[in-house]
Design a protein around this nucleic acid. Structure first.
Lengths: 217, 217
DNA sequence: TGCCGTCTGTGAGTTTGTCACCGAGCCAGA
DNA sequence: TCTGGCTCGGTGACAAACTCACAGACGGCA
């Protein structure tokens, strides 16, 4: 059984297409902290993530950053293909957040399959759609949402099932595209209310219910 | 000579593909102010704009709005296709800003051509790429740029070659995703410096050089 | 132990967003 | 022509967010 069954949207491909996909592409391991794509970089593979996560973020001239979205296992890093074609400059970069295992589909194979298979095209387009809705979400949050609400949401999301989050104020600020001081002050307020506790380099969620209530506003 | 030559990226298609495109799609006229797509709307055509412009904007629950980008003549409204596929909700809508003439390509024809023609796929992907870079730009501006700079940029862009812009403070606020009061204050400041003059429903650019200097910061 | 780089805290000032309200211009109908 | 209602713009007070400058705390390492 090959990896192609692990991708929703690829599992339904005809067997011969899946075989072609598997034989003509290469599984690779990427260590944590690797820049998978960046402005000016020449990527000629479409990456499908088998495990790990890739953080995609934008960097401004002034050095401030904002996280746009994460590519999770079972998803494709389709934005790279878009960015290749893009004429103008952009400033998004993808960095592996954990060690990753990924399938690299060469451009030629990508083109062939896009021509051959309706289902594959469907897969590609729905990958685009997901990323675009992610970007819409970022815009919505930046333009219309208060920082405290966004911080609560992000803390819950990043923590997942765990109670403690190993991260710095600066990293959280990057998540939201805001300044470190803002995060520090918000966290202090959260702590004052007994919602979280802080240590150097970590935040512990104490009162999830309260955070969820704020996040839902 | 058909309309397909007017689209960069389509003009290079083989003649038989262009013919198929032209015979199997329909040219339509759309009056100003029409909602071309919106959340929950079922679009089954890909629109190519022959003339006019479509404004794409996002609306928040609270009623505030932000302009994401404009589709100009010679471009395709490819985001509709993405949004169809998108599982989650999104809140972008497209509104004709002028009377428009557009080619509607039915989904079936779109699929056929995407299968048949490398060049057509290239066209579609580069349309996506353009929109995505537009969204990156919006995010960059929202997260990292001062409002006065963005306003100066937008005034110059919207005015084009003309000196006078027929628009309201509220509409300018929507352009930037900010509040009407903020635009009012910035314009008052611009006026105080002799850069613009204002009348009810219009702004006249007096000192373009100064605005350009600010816009370039 | 002492040094250094990273992480966090904080105050002051600026910019931006929110809220509430008012007045001026414009238009249509009496 | 008057008048009421609507849109547009102006304003003050306040809250939220960002910037800047700097200081102290912590941890790893020589």
């Amino acid at each position: 059984m090959g990896w192609s069954e692990r991708f929703e949207g690829l599992a339904s491909l005809p067997k011969e297409i899946r075989d072609e996909l598997e034989t003509r592409s290469q599984v690779m391991d990427v260590p944590e902290g690797t820049t998978v794509f960046a402005p000016g970089m020449h990527a000629d593979n479409l990456l499908l993530l088998l495990s790990g996560t890739v953080r995609v973020q934008q960097v401004s001239e002034s050095g401030r950053e904002i996280v746009l979205y994460r590519v999770e296992a079972g998803e494709s890093c389709v934005m790279t293909t878009a960015c290749l074609i893009a004429h103008e400059d952009y400033a998004a970069e993808g960095i592996t957040e954990t060690a990753c295992r990924a399938v690299a589909i060469p451009r030629k194979v990508f083109d062939d399959l896009a021509a051959k298979s309706d289902a594959f095209r469907q897969f590609v387009f729905s990958s685009y759609a997901r990323r675009i809705t992610d970007l819409f979400g970022v815009i919505e949050a930046l333009a219309f949402q208060r920082v405290d609400i966004r911080l609560a949401q992000r803390l819950l999301k990043l923590a997942g099932a765990a109670d403690t989050l190993d991260t710095t104020h600066q990293k959280l600020a990057t998540e939201l595209g805001t300044a470190r001081e803002v995060v520090s002050r918000q966290l202090r307020e959260f702590q004052r209310r007994g919602w979280v506790e802080q240590n150097r380099g970590s935040v512990t969620l104490i009162d999830r219910a309260a955070l969820e209530a704020l996040a839902a506003e």
